[in-house]
Design a protein around this nucleic acid. Structure first.
Lengths: 196, 196
DNA sequence: CAAGATAGGTGAGGGTGCCTCAACTTAGCA
DNA sequence: TGCTAAGTTGAGGCACCCTCACCTATCTTG
């Protein structure tokens, strides 16, 4: 059964072009109208028929996932680096800010991260798992270093990040920051900022 | 100009019936599918043509507002009562819980409260204003009583309430409670629950 | 470099939902 | 009892979702 050598033909040039244009327009449209924006509009703006969009991205989530691919890799890399940080509290604080900023890129994105493993977002399940994993490790080290109250779970931190991202989307970045500051203060033994 | 006496005819019996049935079905459907559920489905379930629904409730928001009318009056009444509470901290804590529970009734409701005064939700503008007003007064008295850190604003509390309602909708009631506990601890001078 | 194979592109079409409006019904009132 | 305004109806226009049968352009091989 070494039929594992089907000699994949090189992808057509126009296909590659369309793929890139679709990603670019999707990013623009999602930034302006959120992740529920019209896919037909994206195809239109990319100068492509709707069928072509569906060929490249069978579902809305597949499109979103492709759009986030590079950004997620970069994000998780930074997360891994933070695990080696000398100050676990400060590292966690940085991580929280990074994730919130990321999750607030498109309106509605934070909600997708929550659905995560659910059937609804299979295409994002792995990303969500990695996100949760990094968060859990950072929370673990921060707690071990005494920077967090012992009863604070990584689920608490995840919920806070998503909630802050939602506030960022729906109200303002400033209000999201204030919420973060307050909630984080409630998570530290000293009632102050993390990594003091 | 005393044409202010047009002798309104009594509303038709079937009209009244349809109005009530629409409200009942809307409540059921919104509870199950959130505030973005299909209006045609609601009309169908109410055994009424779609035009009838639009006759009674010209916009989705008009329907939602009608649905919330009584509940809001009750909520604001409780809020006013809490203003006279002997323990301003505990009163604020109760208020926060009440509002979060209310805002989490239908998926998507919390987001509407935020849009509030915006053009998008004119039908809810007044309700939002009253909500904000009660919150502001309770925050004021709590702060004056030293139950809140001085830099905490009523906007902070409002954002927290909406964020917690969102967590309630999207994750779980339990996680929403934990977020509330943590954030509230960050708002008190002692770093503990309100109204201690 | 020609021509075959095939990945890729297209857009009509069926489904759902939003909202409007002209024509029809029916319950209240005199 | 019959007039009439309030109320009801559902087709129809628009937008979006997603699929699929049928083309078409590009890569590849001889």
């Amino acid at each position: 059964m070494d039929s594992a050598t089907p000699r994949r033909r090189r992808p057509r040039a126009d296909a590659r072009r369309n793929y890139e244009r679709l990603l670019a327009e999707a990013d623009a449209v999602f930034r302006e109208h959120g992740v529920d924006a019209s896919l037909e509009r994206i195809a239109r703006q990319a100068g492509v028929a709707i069928g072509t969009l569906y060929k490249h991205f069978p579902t809305r989530l597949a499109l979103i996932a492709a759009l986030l691919r590079e950004r997620h890799d970069a994000l998780f890399a930074r997360g891994d680096a933070l695990l080696a940080d000398a100050s676990p509290g400060a590292a966690l604080a940085t991580w929280i800010r990074l994730v919130v900023a990321h999750a607030a890129t498109y309106q509605g994105l934070a909600a997708l991260f929550i659905v995560g493993p659910g059937l609804k977002a299979a295409e994002l399940a792995e990303d969500c798992a990695r996100l949760a994993s990094v968060t859990e490790q950072l929370v673990g080290t921060a707690r071990a270093a005494g920077a967090l109250r012992p009863e604070v779970t990584s689920a608490d931190v995840s919920a806070l990040m998503n909630a802050a991202a939602w506030v960022h989307e729906e109200i303002s970045a400033d209000q999201a920051n204030r919420l973060l500051d307050l909630a984080v203060a409630g998570m530290t033994p000293t009632g102050t900022a993390l990594g003091s």
